[in-house]
């Protein structure tokens, strides 16, 4: 059963996923997935392990090319748009397995997020005069004032990321995504593996980001408490298909969703291997 189709005015939609299907060899990771993300909302994608949530994110990022279907960002079709270009358009994200650059400091990791919006070319860089220098200093100031203070990571700015504990790494990843000048911020399991307190911090950051930065948030999350607390809209995936969508309250009692999560007790574990064990 599908949730009621939600009709939104076109200008309210920042991201449209239209009939996306994706397969790896015989594994059908996504089958005809369609949904819309409303501008200014927090939309959550949930589903049992292996449901295809990360694959969906990767498709939106342009890392996977769907077998059929299309992604529309802000009224513009992204078909044939390479991942770096999508990043420049304002699609920023974090990764389920934390993809920070181990050989760089926290500050450099965050700076890297701005890459697509900077102009410094090779020659500028070699001489580090004029534009290169100006751009770097502006970036540094902005990161310090808007991101580092905001996420409360002043004390680790010069630390190599490899030395950071897990919770802080997630926060640095969020910082890097913010440096990307996001218009749609995609968070893949932002609180996975965090304790209660860290989870609450992160939920607060997400809400603040939405308010202060004026970005739309699309997140994948297993922590139902958090999903129910902060999201405006929930899309449920199971075996690569959308089985329901709607408000958190409506989705929670949807029989198809309940069935999917009950089944996940044993099925989900078998599907997703060691992670769930």
């Amino acid at each position: 059963m599908r949730g009621l189709p939600v009709t939104l005015a076109a200008r309210d939609v920042i991201l449209g996923v239209e009939g996306v299907s994706l397969a790896f060899g015989g594994v059908r990771a996504l089958t005809d997935v369609s949904f819309s993300v409303r501008r200014g909302s927090i939309t959550a994608v949930i589903g049992p392990n292996g449901a295809g949530k990360t694959s969906l994110f990767n498709t939106i990022s342009g890392f996977y090319r769907p077998r059929s279907g299309n992604v529309v960002f802000d009224g513009r079709s992204l078909a044939g748009t390479a991942p770096p270009e999508r990043a420049r358009l304002g699609l920023a994200r974090t990764f389920q397995n934390i993809a920070l650059f181990r050989g760089m400091t926290v500050l450099d990791n965050i700076k890297l997020g701005r890459h697509a919006h900077m102009r410094t070319g090779l020659l500028d860089a070699l001489v580090y005069r004029g534009r290169a220098r100006r751009e770097e200093l502006e970036l540094r100031a902005e990161i310090e004032e808007r991101i580092i203070d905001f996420l409360e990571i002043q004390h680790i700015r010069n630390a190599p990321v490899a030395t950071l504990p897990y919770g802080l790494r997630k926060r640095v990843e969020l910082a890097r995504a913010l440096a990307m000048r996001p218009r749609l911020l995609m968070l893949d399991e932002p609180v996975a593996g965090m304790n209660r307190e860290e989870t609450e911090d992160m939920a607060r950051f997400i809400l603040d980001v939405k308010e202060e930065w004026d970005v739309t948030i699309l997140m994948v999350e297993h922590d139902m408490g958090m999903v129910m607390d902060i999201s405006d809209h929930v899309v449920v995936l199971n075996f690569g298909q959308v089985i329901a969508e709607g408000s958190p309250a409506a989705v929670q009692v949807d029989p198809a969703v309940v069935a999917a999560y009950l089944g996940a007790g044993d099925l989900g574990r078998r599907l997703s291997g060691p992670e769930a064990a």
Binding site: M104, D108, K111, L112, R114, H115, M118, T120, G121, L122, D124, A125, L126, V127, Y128, A132, E135, E136
Partner: peptide, 9 residues
Amino acid sequence: NLFRTRVGR
């Protein structure tokens, strides 16, 4: 210098 800029990063 290169590694003080976006190119090096």
